[in-house]
Design a binder for these strands. Structure first.
Lengths: 261, 261
DNA sequence: CAGTGGTCTAGACCACTGG
DNA sequence: CAGTGGTCTAGACCACTGC
């Protein structure tokens, strides 16, 4: 049975005048795209189950195997989580075991659970206008409204991370310091539950720097202490940047851990 | 047709007295294991093609689909590279486009190709005995023979990375500074070609530090310059550590780039 | 053209979950 | 027990490579 009349099975060349790229797209990729659209549109909310493979196969008029391969890729991208016997669920940050998914700072000795939960102190939370340095990575215009949050994370009792966050004002209208505090640290979970913004991917740029006086005071360290500067841009679906974050990490008792493959 | 009499299709519980973990292992995982063994044993050398899916399917008495899934995972682990129409090849570092696979330092502006090839200067290459700090991560005993190499990488003309390497003496017997220089920088390629050691995976621990006097002199920077300390352990097949590397990175014009998923 | 990996299907059965 | 994802098979056809 040939590929049924889906959106556009294509695969046949020369459908129009200019065929710069043949742009052959396998069926399962198209299915993946359709499922992705539903995820973006919020048809299924984070934590919920998506329809079963059988149902999706019927809905899209393809075989279960094809849906399976599409979902396999979504699972590999951490957009979806498979649970045998139960179903496939929209990935979420609002689960204890996926907390800290993006935090790569770990203690030199022992493991992350040994030092107890991180303690957050919010220093500042205010509306501001995007400077060029903030606007660029967030794909905004200079002067657009942004929310700026400054906070300190203490690990095992000592202030270890000084963090500045910039969020596009439009998407996060109404966010308050109280809200941040309420979720005590599960920031991305809050973004999902309160604003429907799910972070999917992030990029970090790391440098070694010395703190200025303010920063040194907040972290209670001498100004000669070298720190890790970690600049993160986090993206929602469709590669839209939704958060800029600059962290200063103390690395005397912790280190940034990375795996290369 | 039920799973034929492979090594051990198992899946049946209570084969012995204590069934702590049922340890059900799907067929394709077993096949993956067998292929992995051949890779480790060197049956197929880096860069060479492995047998076709059809042939492997015949050899192992399973369907092509099962072999396919096994190879899919090996490809996802970067142990093998698929090339449509040509075959499946053992991954190698000895290819231009996979150079720098583990080097995450990139220029703040422009891209890595803009600054031309990195220039290596070998400062030292000598036999030594493993201190406890070196022996531990390399899974050696204190006092075991190791090779120590110190070198400087210059990017765009300025010395940017000061690197110390420690290699287990046994596996790298006979390595000379000339050999290192010959491959001008394609270090992991040299390991493959000269010693049959293929690096598969690595872990890095990153801290911010200040250089001591020697280090500052070698990098031609003031001692107050904060640097990235990048400690890497690289592993061959079977998770055997084969290299310890400590790099000091200047991050005034470059940064360590990382992607979170 | 033959040989390779890549896609798609259809159907059987297995493992796990929950009522 | 029914429903879910997970494995395995067998066969057809497509896309790409190189002779």
């Amino acid at each position: 049975m040939p590929p049924p009349p889906l959106p556009s099975p294509d695969g046949t060349p020369s459908d129009d005048g200019l065929a710069a790229t043949p742009a052959f797209s396998p069926l399962y990729q198209q299915i993946k795209g359709l499922i992705l659209q539903s995820l973006q549109a919020g048809d299924w909310k984070p934590g919920e189950a998506i329809p079963s493979e059988m149902e999706l196969a019927a809905r899209y008029r393809v075989s279960q195997g094809t849906v399976r391969k599409a979902i396999d890729e979504l699972a590999a991208d951490n957009l979806v989580v498979r649970r045998q016997g139960k179903g496939t669920f929209v990935a979420t940050h609002a689960e204890h075991h996926v907390q800290y998914r993006f935090l790569k700072l770990v203690p030199d000795v022992g493991d992350i659970s040994a030092e107890g939960p991180a303690q957050r102190t919010i220093i500042e939370c205010r509306k501001a206008r995007a400077s060029i340095d903030v606007a660029r990575p967030l794909a905004l215009r200079t002067g657009d409204p942004v929310l700026q949050i400054r906070r300190i994370l203490s690990l095992g009792g000592t202030p270890t991370i000084l963090e500045d966050l910039w969020l596009p004002g439009q998407a996060f209208k109404g966010l308050t310091a109280e809200q941040m505090a309420q979720y005590h640290g599960a920031t991305y979970a809050m973004f999902e539950l309160e604003f429907g913004v799910r972070m999917v991917r992030a990029e970090e740029k790391i440098k070694a720097v010395l703190p200025d006086e303010t920063q040194a005071n907040l972290l209670q360290i001498p100004m000669q202490t070298p720190l890790l500067s970690v600049e993160r841009v986090a993206f929602t679906y469709k590669d839209i940047p939704m958060e800029l974050r600059r962290g200063l990490y103390r690395t005397d008792t912790h280190h940034y851990r990375n795996e290369l493959n």
